[in-house]
Design a protein around this nucleic acid. Structure first.
Lengths: 148, 148
DNA sequence: AACCTTTTTTAGAATAGTTCTTGATCTAAA
DNA sequence: TTTAGATCAAGAACTATTCTAAAAAAGGTT
């Protein structure tokens, strides 16, 4: 029944976090969805298919715990529902208004996102969020838009 | 009674926007507050002092209209209440966890915030939001933190 | 295993920020 | 001045999220 997994699915411990069934399920949904960035509600739907007893509150709990442990990242774009992603590399988020999807955008080789900003002396950055909005040029909606 | 204002207070028309008393009041509150970035509720408090009849819904309306017209910018940091700022130059926002304030951070001379990101071909950025979180090193709370 | 303690989960209520609705008021144009 | 459309005010409604309290699960210890 249990499928053989070649990719290690974060059985690794994240800061001594207790990996409960629910947390594992939530994490798995997130990493199975790959480059997509689901909202808590979307995670809940998929998680519930696999574990019918799970509740929305638990999904929120798990997402918060996993975020706190550094296993996943919370992505906020405008005031829309938070999205979550398992990509821990430094990256920006691109929200395509054509296909309504959020993509990860990596840093250029050797580039440093912080250095373009003129930070006052003594100012220490602990976290940085970069979100872009536009058209991705890939999705059906975008190709029409791009043609114009 | 009316103070002489040397600085022009956006009597300029923003994309043919009708500058009603309420919109002007909301805009004035925002620009009077200078580098601070008030929430809608905070704008409402100050606006109501000057125009007791104004309602919260109207403040939201005005902020939305002004944002749409490009007169002000909406600033979202995490899922906290939206803040608004009249600074139209390209800039990032720094949220100080010590003093709970949001500061504007300008671009380094000649720098381009977009170029550090490896955007796929065909991808067009229409808007970019950069938010940082950390300690500013200026406020009372920060100086203590910085000493450690 | 049985017991105890702590953590986690669940379901539903509560909350906060924001948007929507409706009727009243204002504005600009004819 | 009339008319049509835009804007405003007040409060209800909505949505994403957090809180609460009780039940369940997980460890650790005998």
């Amino acid at each position: 029944m249990a499928q053989n997994r070649t990719v290690s699915k974060a059985t690794e411990d994240f800061g001594g976090l207790r990996m409960t069934k629910q947390r594992q399920a939530v994490y798995d949904v997130l990493s199975d969805l790959g480059p997509q960035h689901p909202t808590a509600a979307e995670v809940f739907v998929t998680a519930k298919e696999r574990m019918p007893s799970i509740s929305l509150a638990t999904v929120y709990n798990c997402l918060e715990t996993l975020t706190g442990a550094g296993a996943i990242k919370q992505v906020n774009i405008d005031r829309e529902a938070s999205r979550y992603c398992p990509n821990l590399q430094p990256h920006a988020h691109f929200y395509c208004t054509g296909c309504n999807q959020v993509f990860d955008i990596g840093l250029e080789r050797g580039a440093d996102a912080e250095s373009v900003w003129s930070l006052p002396a003594g100012c220490r950055v602990e976290e940085m969020h970069v979100a872009m909005r536009g058209i991705c040029g890939r999705c059906p909606n975008c190709s029409t838009a791009a043609k114009s």
